[in-house]
Amino acid sequence: MEIFGTWLAAFFTLGIISFLYRDNAWYKLCESIFVGISAGYWFVTLFWDNIHGLFWERITERHDYWLLIGASLGLMMLLRLIPPIGWISRWPLSFVVGATAGLYIINYFASNVMVQVENTLMPLFSAKFGDPLFSASPYSIVGNIVVAAGTFTGLVYFFFSKEHKGAFGGMAKIGIWTIMITFGASFGYTVMSRMSLLIGRMDFIFGDWLGLIR
């Protein structure tokens, strides 16, 4: 059975890779099967985890009747299918948007604004506050300056209440350069990621399937 699974996986892997040459029937077959299976898989997973696991089991076994409120909101969401009363579906949507926004504001504001600003406040020439002057390695000193200047000029670039002219414009230019360098690093990492996936597949084809790799 395991051998059958391996051969099947290899069939689909090669089918998808064949797209590199050009679109063909094999690729189309693999793609359609993949789309169909993933839709089915998600349906089954969500049904068993949400409707059965989180709702039905908890109602019947643990008698957690608060869940009925959530379930009725869920039902309202489905009313979109009946156009005359479809507007009711906006209520649960508002609930979800409101609750998520409330949670996100605190989380994002604390983690991505407060903590980040706090950690940008550092003496430029030391490893951390309280350490003697020039205690950091040249590498960290450059790092500190890049972080402080990069954050500041990045903010300048995204400041919309003043024209980018003169010194302010110059700082904005440094800001956008910093952002572009970050994008470059990010792109490099993405190439690395995609290559890793390809390596993983090739290891499967030549190792697990064909057994050519030791």
């Binding site: 983690s111 903590v115 980040q116 706090e118 950690n119 972080v147 970050t182 690093a185 990010s186 990492y189 993405t190 690395m192 990621s193 890793s196």
Partner: peptide
């Protein structure tokens, strides 16, 4: 992390989060 999102995690690393 997968490499794709690694760069986005460095600020958290630097802030010791």
């Amino acid at each position: 992390n997968t490499a794709v999102q690694t760069t986005q995690m460095y600020p958290y690393l630097r802030a010791r989060q």
